[in-house]
Simulated assay, not measured.
Amino acid sequence: MQNPATATTESDFAELPATAAHGPLRIEYCWVNEAAGETPGHAPLALFLHEGLGSLAMWRDWPQRLCERLGMRGLVYSRPGYGGSTPRAHHVKWPVDFMTAQARDILPALLDALAIDMEERKRMWVIGHSDGGSIALLYAALFPDALAGAVAIAPHVFVEDISVESIAQTKELYETTDLRRKLSRYHADVDSAFYGWNDIWLNPAFRAWNITGELAGIRKPLLAVQGDDDNYGTMAQIDTIAERVPHAELVKLDACGHSPHRDAPDALNEAIAAFVAKRR
């Protein structure tokens, strides 16, 4: 599979053995800006966690450009159910705590499979968008010493009406327009990806999902970014993060929707670069 994250890099696959938490998994991943890893002392790692309908390919070239700006090498991967990774069986529904499972079980297992040791993890920056932003927050809380810092872009820490309403509208678009065809370019099993995400977010039981209590476990530097035109969440999300994590810094982007890396990439890259530079 050609990887649109860079012009030349092909994605690869990591095999995760079955555990009590999950069955055997094949995870699609790629490295970006690998030349940075050849510098003396080895450049820190930036790890990217995609959105609820995202994949390795849907990032396009943003991870490469950000890593070049930061002087880091990057790791981009598709979570199970997305991109070229093991698809979700169609009869399986994601549980309410699916994001916690990704942070607690899948991400550490992938790091193990790629032989990323604890010393390298301590220098790693975890960068997530939307659901991936929530997973970044959870990883930072669950493994407070296994990263250098985190960047959460348009994350969710509780469920808002605006999120559910927009996700319901997206389902209608998926079933009545060419959205399914467009998304199929980025997922080996597009229905696995779409309905895994859509079904859990529209499940009435998910309305009670809330990770604000977990945020107090975050000790490392944290940047939270939100666009003011986001139709999947409001500023209440990152304002709540600031209440629970006093050392967190917030960036609020004007004229920006749910995907700052597409809507305002220059402003986002500048904010991340300035934040990281103060902590290196």
Results as ranks from 00 to 15, higher is better:
149 G>P: 12
155 P>H: 08
109 A>M: 04
168 A>T: 08
132 G>H: 03
221 P>D: 01
198 N>K: 07
196 G>Y: 05
176 T>C: 08
190 V>C: 12
221 P>F: 01
182 K>A: 14
175 E>I: 06
205 A>S: 14
182 K>G: 10
211 I>Q: 04
171 K>W: 09
221 P>R: 00
134 S>R: 12
200 I>M: 10
225 V>Y: 00
116 I>A: 06
164 V>N: 01
167 I>Q: 10
138 L>R: 15
132 G>E: 02
221 P>T: 00
181 R>Y: 07
190 V>R: 11
207 R>W: 08
126 V>K: 03
221 P>E: 01
123 R>Y: 02
108 P>M: 06
178 D>L: 09
166 S>W: 04
187 H>V: 01
132 G>K: 02
218 I>K: 06
171 K>Q: 14
171 K>N: 13
230 D>I: 05
222 L>I: 11
201 W>M: 07
130 S>E: 05
118 M>I: 15
223 L>E: 01
185 R>V: 04
167 I>P: 08
172 E>R: 15
108 P>V: 04
217 G>P: 12
218 I>A: 02
226 Q>C: 07
214 E>F: 06
215 L>A: 08
122 K>V: 01
196 G>N: 04
208 A>M: 12
122 K>P: 00
174 Y>S: 13
113 A>K: 05
157 V>P: 02
197 W>N: 03
144 P>T: 04
211 I>R: 09
209 W>Q: 00
154 A>M: 09
186 Y>M: 06
186 Y>V: 03
173 L>Y: 07
132 G>R: 01
221 P>S: 01
131 D>R: 14
110 L>D: 11
215 L>E: 05
199 D>E: 05
154 A>G: 09
123 R>F: 04
143 F>N: 10
117 D>M: 11
136 A>M: 12
164 V>E: 00
222 L>Q: 10
158 F>Q: 06
203 N>H: 03
138 L>K: 13
198 N>S: 14
213 G>I: 07
108 P>E: 10
176 T>D: 03
219 R>D: 13
179 L>Y: 06
219 R>F: 12
139 Y>R: 08
219 R>A: 15
208 A>K: 14
137 L>W: 09
186 Y>C: 07
144 P>C: 10
148 A>F: 00
226 Q>F: 03
174 Y>H: 12
123 R>M: 04
134 S>V: 11
191 D>C: 13
162 I>V: 14
141 A>D: 05
146 A>S: 12
155 P>D: 08
123 R>I: 02
145 D>T: 13
173 L>I: 08
150 A>L: 04
123 R>V: 02
174 Y>E: 12
131 D>C: 12
228 D>A: 09
186 Y>I: 06
172 E>G: 11
113 A>P: 00
150 A>W: 02
